[in-house]
Amino acid sequence: MGKLYVVGTPIGNLEDLTPRAARILGEVSLIAAEDTRVTRRLLSHLGIHVPMVSYNEHNKHQRLPALLEDLGSGDLALVTDAGMPAVSDPGSDLVAQAAAAGFQVEAVPGVSAVTTALSMSGMSGDGFLFLGFLPRKARERRTKLEGLTESTHTLVVFEAPHRLKATLRDILAVLGEREMSVCRELTKLYEEVFRGTASEALAHFREPRGEFVLVIRGVTPTAAASGPTDDQLEEAGQRLASLRKDGVRAKDAVAQVSDALGMTKNRVYQMWVESGRTTR
């Protein structure tokens, strides 16, 4: 009976592959890779010639039975394109079913873009929420962010270059001017870590390229605990209704009411969204 190795691979710099990972990849009978083309480049660099099969979000249901059968006769390594399998990756299904079938599962730890970005951000990693990739659709993305407006945890988000600006705009609108760290091409030749606010990041990344990890500071516990008074909420509602009637944009209306009443932009924006639903 074989063993399933969950192997971490570099997120950019090939020197970050551990000697143990290199040894395991050369000893297994088969490698299940997210994209065999990407993994083939790593294996060529190592001089390793081991059979591979693709295992990804599109074919995982078809591949699983055959991979479990392969485990019956030899060791199998599970790898993703970059980082640890099963983190924003379909590998968790294979791990769960292999363990349920009685196969031994062993981790071969490696680099993670999540912890790498956290360590570079200067923000606390004592308590953080990893969100993977936010929804592609704007409405769903904003809804996801609205549920995090009062979270005191540091938030970690993956994002593709073609969606970065839209995501930053939604972060600004929903979470406000949070301190954040935007990490680009981590461990690669053109690595960049931008530290600032969402609006500053929007101005900086005019033509985003590469792979991004966003680290966003959570609200302070005191700010989360002390909400606005009933009088503030009533006045804010009246002001927002008047501004909406006058055709003022959401961003400007939220800023005006937040500055005038001393309420957080997150809370004011929530009220704006809720009032919009009731007026439809």
Rank of each mutant, 00 (worst) to 15 (best):
F103S: 04
T152K: 10
F205G: 11
K165L: 14
L76M: 12
S151D: 13
S124F: 03
P208E: 08
G26S: 06
K144W: 08
G2R: 01
D246P: 06
T149P: 03
A32D: 01
F205Q: 11
L129D: 08
A22F: 05
L71C: 04
A98M: 04
R139P: 03
L46S: 05
L134Y: 04
A101E: 13
K165Q: 14
D259R: 13
V156T: 07
M120T: 08
M271F: 05
H153L: 15
R206G: 10
Q97D: 13
R195V: 12
S119N: 14
R163Y: 00
E191G: 10
R20A: 11
G125A: 15
L4N: 05
S242D: 11
V219G: 08
M84I: 01
H58I: 07
G176D: 06
S124E: 12
D230R: 14
L94T: 02
K60C: 01
P109E: 04
H58L: 10
T143I: 11
L164P: 02
P221G: 10
H45K: 09
L30R: 03
M84F: 03
M263C: 11
A241M: 10
E146H: 15
S73D: 10
M120L: 15
G74D: 07
V50H: 02
R195D: 02
K251S: 11
R217Y: 05
T115Y: 02
E191R: 08
M120I: 09
P85I: 04
S112D: 05
A223K: 12
R195K: 15
L202R: 08
Q97K: 14
N266V: 04
L214M: 15
A96R: 15
F212R: 03
P90M: 13
L214S: 05
N266A: 15
L214D: 02
A203E: 15
G72F: 05
A223T: 14
G12D: 03
P10L: 07
L46W: 00
K144N: 06
L43P: 02
G91M: 04
V268G: 02
D89W: 03
G83Y: 00
G8K: 07
E150W: 13
L202Y: 02
R206E: 15
S258K: 07
E179I: 05
A160R: 06
L94E: 01
L240C: 07
D16N: 07
H45V: 08
H162I: 06
W272F: 14
L164C: 11
A77M: 02
P135A: 13
S226R: 14
R41T: 13
E179L: 12
A22I: 06
E57P: 01
L64K: 02
P65T: 05
L172P: 00
L168V: 09
V157A: 09
G102N: 11
R244T: 11
V53I: 14
P51N: 06
V157W: 02
A225G: 07
T149A: 10
E200N: 11
A100E: 14
L175D: 01
T149G: 10
R141Q: 13
T222Y: 01
G227K: 15
G227I: 10
T80Q: 00
R267T: 14
L168D: 02
K251V: 13
G125P: 01
L131D: 05
N13V: 09
E192A: 10
T116E: 06
S275K: 12
K60R: 15
V193H: 06
G227Q: 12
A138E: 14
